[in-house]
Simulated scan of single mutants.
Amino acid sequence: MIERILLLLFPAFLLLSSCSEATNQDRSLTEGEEPVTLNIDTTGLAKATFAGGCFWCTEAYFERLQGVKAVISGYSGGTKPNPTYREVSYGRTDYAEAVQVYYDPEQISYETLVEVFFATHDPTTLNSQGPDFGEQYRSIAFYRSPEEQQVIEQYIQQLNEAGTYQNDIVTYVEPFKKFWIAEDYHQDYYKINPTDPYVVSVARPKVKKFEKKYQNKLKAEYKD
């Protein structure tokens, strides 16, 4: 991971960079807990957690879907208490950049979220996504119940049988344990920082491609 200062000094390294560093407060979420900063009523909402590369992109995809009420960027799949972005992005922990999706199951199904997850990153590349390399960018689908585990595994089987990808799917299917909220400046990063070099050159083309493909599932403000 290359820090923001390197982006400024060495533009040639742009495509090797992702989100930048900051300190982190104690922001852990276990099952049943909700973030204080989540300004929505979570009554009746379900949660899903995915890791599919840089969370700036992943967050932007899910935020656009009808039925998704909030998306939070953070870290999951690791063991160290209170991980910081510097630690995760430098590969000093076993965490992956992840998002926690709050959705209305009466408006969008878990199956659809799983479909979007696999459609918006490459599940066949181990520990990398596009210009981002390292274990922190590995593909993980977290499940909260045996039913969700079955949905994920059956969809992977479906993709394999259809020959959707030339290479084997290497996505980890793991039980959800804990989610650490990323630093404040990572939240809604794509929306708040439209001129960021990484957003312009890497994230935006991916998001625009997603919007074109999933027009019928987007919120009204994101439709053409």
Rank of each mutant, 00 (worst) to 15 (best):
M1G: 15
I2P: 01
I2K: 14
I5T: 07
L6I: 13
L9P: 00
F13Q: 10
C19V: 15
S20V: 13
E21R: 11
D26E: 13
R27E: 12
P35D: 10
P35M: 09
V36L: 13
L38A: 10
T42H: 03
T42I: 09
T42D: 01
K47G: 03
K47M: 05
T49S: 04
F50M: 02
A51P: 01
G53A: 07
G53H: 03
F55Q: 04
W56F: 02
T58M: 13
A60Q: 02
F62V: 02
E63R: 09
V68T: 06
V68F: 05
A70M: 05
V71P: 03
V71Y: 01
G74H: 09
T79R: 08
S89P: 08
G91S: 11
R92P: 00
D94P: 02
D94Q: 15
E97Q: 02
A98Q: 10
A98M: 05
V99A: 03
Q100T: 04
Q100S: 05
Q100G: 01
Y103A: 03
P105M: 04
P105Q: 01
Q107V: 10
E111D: 14
T112Y: 03
E115D: 13
V116F: 06
F117C: 06
F117T: 09
A119T: 12
H121W: 08
T124A: 09
P131G: 15
D132Q: 07
F133T: 11
F133A: 05
G134V: 13
E135H: 13
R138Y: 07
R138H: 08
F142R: 04
F142V: 00
Y143V: 04
Y143E: 07
Y143I: 05
Q150C: 01
V151R: 05
I152Q: 04
Q154E: 14
Y155K: 12
Q157E: 15
Q158A: 15
L159R: 09
E161H: 08
G163K: 12
T164P: 08
Y165G: 11
N167T: 13
N167Y: 15
V170A: 14
Y172H: 14
K177E: 13
D188I: 02
Y189A: 10
D196H: 15
P197C: 11
Y198T: 14
Y198I: 14
V200H: 03
V200A: 03
V200N: 07
V202Q: 11
V202G: 04
V202S: 12
K206D: 00
K208L: 12
K209Q: 09
F210T: 05
K217F: 00
K217P: 00
K217W: 09
L218N: 06
K219Q: 05
K219R: 04
A220L: 14
